[in-house]
Each structure stands twice: as structure tokens, then as C-alpha cells.
Design a binder for these strands. Structure first.
Lengths: 205, 205
DNA sequence: AACTATCTGTTAACTAATTCACAATAAATT
DNA sequence: AATTTATTGTGAATTAGTTAACAGATAGTT
């Protein structure tokens, strides 16, 4: 892991990697900054700068060696160990996010899912789905430290307190609530309605 | 509509409104900038600056009158007419986003949904779900100009071309593809995996 | 009536993010 | 061998976003 990368750079590196993994690098093992930038609809200088930040250098003429680049991005942004993720709420949204995981061979692993309804405890994609009452215990036991909250906005404060107590250090929050967490916990909010209203605003001829 | 608001301000205004709508303003009709900021976990100066940008003024002691503020935010960021939105892909993710709509009385209306599988044409939450083959025709006919793409990444380029030709001016893109659109079309990308990888990076003790 | 406390509105300072622009380099071409 | 062309790596400039700071205002208090 390379320390102190800017947040947006980390996100872009993740995007570069995903894009490159689906790029035919067996046939074309090198890529230029402007080509990659074009694929991602961003500025070529951005690509070069981001790669500079992780100390990856390309060939002045051939460009960047894709296979090596994928590995170096991993060294820069992945953890050594697999991170375990809990999914809280496994309705449409929770399932959608969890499915995205399974198509992706990342260092992140769905370790447990939880839901509010008591009955019954089901399996979801080979992962056990517990009732939230067991959340604290399971998160502690399995040493889970990331969580995705994808619940209709009920009782989110209570749930947040629980999982933070149990050791969760990062939360991807799909509810429109604004979570109360200690400073040590990193929260990434995503509110679909505000994205849509933004879209509406910026497309008004 | 107030022109030239910064993108982040538009998003925050949308958040203020939603938060205020669920605030007991019948009993407490006024709110201070620091109180609203606290609820949203942001800086009070931010709230004041955003409201300044839409020309809304508060009372030096009582604060901002919530009911009026909600209306003024509407005037600032909503369109006059209802905007029609098409949902393309109505799997777990598409349904989740569409559901979020129905709990929200915004100026945005789900006008049609589309899916890849041919059979049968179903109803989803009182909205007809068509096969994508009819997309261009329906979007034109119903004068839809916003779209949410929530598909597993197949053929997204082709679909994008189709809907842009049909008149769509804004796209909320949940696929990890980077859409090829003319400059006049506004695209908002949301890639869950990169958000999660960012979370993982910034919570690595 | 003077004083205190507090909040808005706004300017200014600051920080982060993006983009420009170009030296350095080396392959390809003349 | 000289010239052209194209690309990286990076400092500098620019733009966007956030936060600090405070004048001005006014209710409440002494």
C-alpha cells in the first residue's frame, strides 16, 4: 500500500485496473496514456499523474506495460490480507451490490449478510444470511471490518452504533441518512436521489 | 431554476431538502445553519454559502424558515415540468433505484422501463416494462429525456447510442462502462466496486 | 440604555483536483 | 546523420471546492 494517495486517485486507479483487466493485453501488452484516458473519458495528464503517484513508469514509445501495471495498482491500493465485508439489508439493492462482488476477483470478500426480518435464516450466494440481532457477535467473530448498509432508512443509527462497536472501520452507506460515527470510521455516502436531481438540473436545456 | 450552480451545491441542496422534509417543521418551523450542517455531517459555512447562492436569506436569530426554504430549493434546482425517466435494466439494481423513486415525491417520474429479455412484457410498479427493441420508439413517443442504465455490462454502447438518438439528455450510469456520448449529454457514473476499493484503502489502519 | 451573546451573509484564505505545457527521450523516417 | 514525430514525467497554472473569519444585526439580559 502506498500512503497518502488522494481519494480521487484511488478511485481512478481502481477504474484503470478494471478497465485493463477487460482489455486484450495478451495481444496488445502496452497502452498509451491517451488511449486509457480515452476509454475512461478523462484527461491523459490525469492518467500519467496518477501512475506517477504510484511510481509506475512507462516506456516513452510503447507506453505502459499493462500486466505489470495491473500488479502495481494492486500493490498501491489493495490490502495484504483479504478484507471481509458485511452486507446489511439484502433486498434489491443489497443483492445488486453483492452480485457486483461475485463478478469481481477483488481482495474483498462477502463474509456475511444480515437482514431485519427474523425468519428464516437463508443462504445468499453461498453466504449465510443472519438476522440483525446476531450482527455484533458475528462481525466480532469473523473479524469483519467493512460494511455495506443498503436498508430502507429504518433504525440506521442503531445499526451503525452496533457495527462500529463490533469493529467495523468503513461503511458504504446507501441510505439517505447521515451516519453518526467516530472520526476513525470512514463513511462513503451514496444517495441515488440526489444524483438524479443533479442530472435533472444539468440537463435542463 | 437558478443557472450555474456548482455541481456539489446542487447535490447538497437536494440533500437539504430531503432532510428538511423529514424534519418536524410543523413544531419547529426554523432551523439554524449549524443544526442543518450537523444533521448532514458537513460544515455550517457550507450550508450558508449554498443558500446564499440561491438567494435565500434567513433570520439572524431564528435561522432559516424551513417551509419556505424547501420551496426555494425547488425553484432553484427543479424543472418547471415533470421530467420523465426511463429505466433500462430492471434486475435487482434497477428495481432498487426505481423503488427509491416511489418513496419520493420529486419532479421526476418513471415513465417506462426496459429489459433485454424478450418475454413477457410485464408491469413494474404500475409502469409498463418493454423489451429494449421498442426503446427508441417509446422514448421518442413519451418524450423521455433522462435514463438510468442498470444492466450487467452487455451491449451498453449500442443501447447508449439508441437512447441518445431518441432524445435522452442525461444518463445515470450504474455499469462500469464509460459511455460514449456527445458533449451535450450529461453522464453521471456510479461504480460500486471503485467506491468499495476506496473504502478498503482508506480504512487500512 | 448599554452590554452580551449569537447567528447570518460574505469575503478571503486555504486546500484539493484538474489541466496545461514543455523538456527529455528515443523510435521512425528522410 | 539529421530530422521529424510521438510519448512520458512533471512543474506550473488553473479551476473547483471547502473552511475560516468577521462585520453587521438583533434578541435577550443586566
Amino acid at each position: 500500500m502506498i500512503e497518502n494517495l488522494p481519494p480521487n486517485t484511488v478511485e481512478r486507479l481502481s477504474n484503470y485496473r478494471r478497465k485493463l483487466l477487460s482489455y486484450p493485453f495478451q495481444e496488445k501488452p502496452f497502452i498509451h496514456s491517451h488511449r486509457l484516458a480515452h476509454l475512461l473519458k478523462i484527461n491523459p495528464a490525469h492518467v500519467r499523474r496518477d501512475l506517477m503517484l504510484i511510481g509506475f513508469t512507462g516506456d516513452v514509445h510503447k507506453g505502459y506495460e499493462i500486466e505489470k501495471l495491473i500488479i502495481e495498482i494492486g500493490k498501491a491500493i489493495d490490502c495484504q490480507h483479504k478484507r471481509k465485508v458485511a452486507f446489511i439489508g439484502i433486498g434489491d439493492l443489497g443483492r445488486a451490490v453483492a452480485e457486483a462482488f461475485n463478478h469481481d476477483d477483488s481482495k474483498l470478500e462477502v463474509a456475511a449478510t444480515f437482514r431485519l426480518t427474523a425468519e428464516p435464516e437463508i443462504q445468499f450466494q453461498n453466504v449465510h444470511c443472519y438476522n440483525v440481532s446476531k450482527m455484533k457477535q458475528i462481525i466480532r467473530q469473523k473479524k469483519i471490518d467493512l460494511a455495506v448498509i443498503a436498508l430502507p432508512n429504518a433504525d440506521v443509527d442503531e445499526i451503525t452504533k452496533l457495527i462500529v462497536d463490533a469493529g467495523v472501520k468503513g461503511i458504504l452507506n446507501f441510505t439517505s441518512a447521515h451516519l453518526k460515527v467516530p472520526e476513525t470510521v470512514f463513511v462513503e455516502n451514496y444517495d441515488m436521489m440526489s444524483k438524479l436531481e443533479k442530472l435533472s438540473y444539468f440537463t435542463n436545456e
